[in-house]
Design a protein around this nucleic acid. Structure first.
Lengths: 157, 157
DNA sequence: TGATCGGAGACCATTATAGTCTCCGATCTT
DNA sequence: AAGATCGGAGACTATAATGGTCTCCGATCA
């Protein structure tokens, strides 16, 4: 349960790779192309291409066309959160269908639903978790993760 | 992203309902049948039936056959965690495909994967979150039954 | 000018989800 | 004992999401 998609997985791998190349000691500032990443991690080339295109559209990376082209991080690694990456690929975080109901939409259980509020607390905690972890944390060091459970905060009714 | 299924949603609603009926002030100890829950929350009857059967198989609730039959919590509400409920319906928590790889299974990216460890950290944090929240924390605030117990008003711990 | 890059969209197979239908066995009431 | 009411179980289906492929285009650089 609560699995992230392969595409999101690939996005994380690719960004980790780009970040490491770009801010590592070996070839700092180097542009990374899709093929390099696909081969390095055994990711289907064309699928990865779409993932990277999406990330570029969401301004997490910058693309450079032509030979010697490829991708570069749009920001520094510590300014790119895991939440941003995942949301770029999979859309906004939403534990339940009713998490981001717009006006007009409507849930059959809404009037009488007693689990919405506690579930939104859970969702907020996960969001906090993913927002507090950045690409930088995935480059080498152990990520610092601190969360507070909704139960500990008290569930309002 | 990270959405739980409708079935898991229904499971939470149903258990919240059963818990509230069973430990509330109005009809404590009452057995609740599938139809009652389905009608109360507009859940397709037969789908809910399957969900409750699964919960019974996982020993979260006890079933009683025959007329006046139905379901009762197998344990007290504070001993049933959200994690247990969700895992009963959706299987074990697993952010990535490689979260519970058995020997013999194998991931194309494994040898060279730098995101596995940090992602497992995220997963552990979510697990901790879901394990620390119980059905008890989701009780209270129903239009049918008002809980007056101190435990329902503020969450201890 | 042509090889190399990303951009974009159609396309497809497989799987998961959500929901339905039918029949069975247990049990309670009468 | 009979019949109504409950859960148990499995087959079945429609729809959507996922994972992946294919093709063509435009930009760019040597």
């Amino acid at each position: 349960m609560l699995k992230i998609s392969k595409k999101a997985d690939y996005a994380l791998m690719a960004l980790q790779h780009i970040a490491t190349v770009q801010f590592g000691d070996v070839t700092p500032g180097r542009v990374v192309n899709t093929k390099e990443i696909a081969e390095e991690y055994n990711i289907p080339l064309e699928l990865l291409a779409k993932v990277l295109q999406t990330l570029a559209k969401n301004a997490l990376i910058e693309s450079h066309n032509g030979p010697k082209g490829g991708y570069v991080l749009a920001r520094r690694a510590h300014q790119i959160t895991i939440a941003q990456i995942l949301e770029s690929i999979e859309g906004p975080l939403g534990i339940t269908d009713c998490s981001h109901e717009k006006d007009g939409e409507f849930c059959m259980q809404r009037d009488n639903c007693h689990i919405r509020t506690p579930l939104l607390k859970v969702q907020d905690s996960i969001a906090q978790l993913l927002n507090n972890m950045t690409l930088q944390d995935m480059m080498g060091g152990t990520p610092l993760i601190t969360i507070q459970s909704p139960a500990a905060q008290g569930v309002e009714r």
